[in-house]
């Protein structure tokens, strides 16, 4: 006789798919603190990690919805496209890379020009799309930022540029480089006309965008932890052949070195911009 006897018979075998709870698409991992976050919580928190405050990268339209009153705005200049002036080919033709980026993002290039209201005041915002070839600035980005500046001047409306960019776009050669000068030239006129221009630098903003309009705001403000610089950290590491200091080229590092006016949490960014604009415009 056995001391223990199962009289329940064989246990019902669970099917494979019933063994796991289906969480795919519901949760995400914080890239900084590795915490598991419910996606809805993250979205409700302007895509800032509720545990550690890490700011996730966001797209241009998501940015514009967060900033404008009621998330309402109209887009402008969306019909500008690059004609691939250099007929550039590396491992794949630039024209194909462009087409793929256009399909993936639904945009024609790496910036969205928009008009709407911010704190009840008519405002222009140009927001960059990092997922479009690294938010790089070619002729179209340069032209669109310039058009936004000229529109701000013509309509006497403040302009905000939200940057996220790896710099000038190689595939358009010096035509990309020269956009830095073009945009900066247009900013002279805005400056002379006393129309506010606020630059918001987000993760990452480097190269030709930092070395032109992103550093030329009446206020240059950044999101926490954003990588901001001229040369990329890898290039510097290769040049000086030593490890870079901790926190190098992060927003906090730039603030410490006097390069930024403020670091503003994304959740209070809208409010900060409204206050700044009312200071500038009575």
């Amino acid at each position: 006789m056995t001391w223990f006897k199962s009289n329940k018979g064989p246990r019902a075998v669970l099917r494979e798919e019933d063994k796991t709870v289906r969480t795919e698409g519901l949760f995400t991992k914080c890239e900084s603190c590795r915490a598991i976050i419910w996606k809805k919580d993250l979205d409700a928190n302007d895509r800032v990690c509720p545990k550690c405050g890490y700011h996730f990268k966001i797209g241009a339209h998501e940015r514009l919805r967060m900033l404008f009153d009621e998330g309402a705005y109209e887009t402008l200049d969306a019909d500008l496209v690059s004609p691939d002036p250099l007929k550039f080919v590396d491992r794949q033709p630039y024209s194909e890379k462009l087409a793929a980026a256009q399909r993936a993002t639904g945009l024609n290039d790496a910036v969205v020009n928009a008009r709407g209201k911010l704190g009840g005041r008519a405002t222009l915002i140009s927001a960059m799309e990092y997922s479009f070839i690294g938010g790089s600035m070619g002729s179209v980005v340069g032209e669109m930022i310039t058009l936004a500046i000229e529109r701000a001047l013509a309509e006497r409306v403040p302009l905000i540029a939200v940057s996220a960019s790896g710099g000038a776009r190689m595939h358009e050669g010096v035509l990309s480089l020269i956009q830095m000068a073009k945009v900066s030239a247009a900013l002279v006129r805005l400056d002379d006309a006393h129309i506010p221009f606020i630059s918001v630098l987000t993760d990452p903003t480097t190269g030709g965008v930092t070395a032109s309009y992103a550093m030329l705001g009446d206020l240059n403000i950044a999101e926490p932890g954003a990588l901001i610089g001229f040369a990329g950290p890898r290039v510097i590491e290769q040049t000086i052949r030593q490890k870079l200091p901790k926190g190098f080229q992060r927003a906090e590092f730039l603030l410490q070195h006097g390069m930024l006016d403020a670091i503003v949490d994304r959740r209070s960014l809208r409010n900060y911009l409204i206050i700044a604009q009312s200071f500038f415009l009575a």
């Binding site: 070395a211 030329l216 040369a231």
Partner: peptide, 26 residues
């Protein structure tokens, strides 16, 4: 090119160039 180094970044390489681009236009 502009020098890629820790010191150049600390002292605002990007800002220095950006500022020149604007001011040379004036």
């Amino acid at each position: 090119g502009a020098y890629p180094s820790v010191g150049a970044e600390e002292r605002g390489q990007a800002e220095a160039i950006a500022h020149n681009l604007r001011e040379m236009n004036r």
